[in-house]
Simulated scan of single mutants.
Amino acid sequence: MAHKSRRAEGSNLAFLDIMSCGLGAVILVFMLVKQNIADAPAEIDNLKQDISTLEQARDEAQQNLAELRARLKKENVDLAAMGRDFKQQRDDLEGKKTALQQATSELDALKETITQIPAPTKEDLVESQQINEENYLLGLKVEGDKIAILVDVSASMTHEKLIDIIKTKSGSQQGKLAAEKWLRTRRVVEWLLARLPKTSQVVVIAYSEDARQLGGKGWMTAKASNTVSSIINELKTIVPEGATNLQKGLNVAKSFAPSNYYVITDGLPTKGESRYKSLNPFSSCGSLTGTAKTISGECRKRLFKQTVSESGPKSAQVDIVLLPLEGDPEAAYEYWLWASSTQGLVISPASNWP
């Protein structure tokens, strides 16, 4: 019995030991946990701060993602629009290429047609070596069955400036023949003669204080071998001098009844054939009535109108080649009125023509 009692007591002690150890462990854990509780708020704040930072980063990432998606969507829309524009431009380019090819083909066909057209040739009656000879004056065409060419051979036909004209007047005959404007006048006559229709008849009249036909008598046939050469050779011998009496030239031409007049001059006339003393408009024009040596611009204009009225052609066309002259501003207008009334032209050619 004693033995059993001792065995039960030992078991109880072992159980108590186990319980004591367990209680100690609980106390230790409690003590440890209670000690860490003091540090828990700081850790929680840190965790909360970390969570807030992460949430903020998440929100920013989501916002950036939304922006990227919106941008991508916009770029996709722009890319689609660019694709449509590119397709439209490519279609337009193809259309232009087709139109260009068609135009090129038409141009080649036109060129081929032009090359097959026989070019009409006009054989000039006079050969000219002038560099600018091919630059024909626009609108001035030599035509007509009966052509009268009137050439002003007065002293003013030597130069453009008055001072040079005065110097040449007192100079030698050779100086007058070699004067710049006179050489040009001769070239103008040659230019007109070179373009005479072969079936035409021509008369060339030189006028200053007097007037005479050049190259022969009566109408001369343009196609005759010696017609043009005889006119040019005689023109080369004329010395430009004296006053300008257009009326004398017109009176000589009028006797031939030309169909077309070509007048080469540089200004209004300074002399005439009328009885000016008996004409009231000329009462103040002393040079025409014999009481003065010089003539005013106004009197030259009145003289021109009187000359055209008395001796100008009534139905023939008149074309004028007006060379430059200093101090005669009314000439261009007055000659234009005369030419236009006959359906003709006034040409003031460039200095390098012909």
Rank of each mutant, 00 (worst) to 15 (best):
S170Q: 13
G218Y: 05
G215I: 08
A194D: 09
K161Y: 11
E209D: 15
T199L: 11
V202E: 00
K167M: 15
G218S: 01
R184F: 07
P197A: 05
L193G: 11
I163M: 10
G218H: 04
R187V: 11
D164C: 10
Q174S: 14
V203A: 09
L177I: 08
A155D: 14
A222F: 06
G216E: 02
K181S: 01
L193N: 07
G218T: 02
K223S: 13
M157A: 06
K223C: 03
V204N: 08
T185F: 12
E160M: 13
Q213E: 08
R195L: 05
Q174G: 10
A206M: 04
Q201L: 08
V202D: 04
E180F: 00
I205G: 05
V188L: 12
H159P: 04
G171F: 13
K169Y: 10
E209H: 12
A178R: 15
E209M: 12
G216F: 06
S208Q: 13
L183R: 08
E180L: 06
K169L: 15
G215W: 07
D152W: 08
T158K: 05
L183T: 06
L214M: 00
R184C: 11
I165H: 03
T158F: 03
V204F: 04
K181W: 08
Y207P: 00
T221K: 04
R212Q: 15
A155I: 15
R212F: 15
Q213G: 05
K176I: 01
V204R: 04
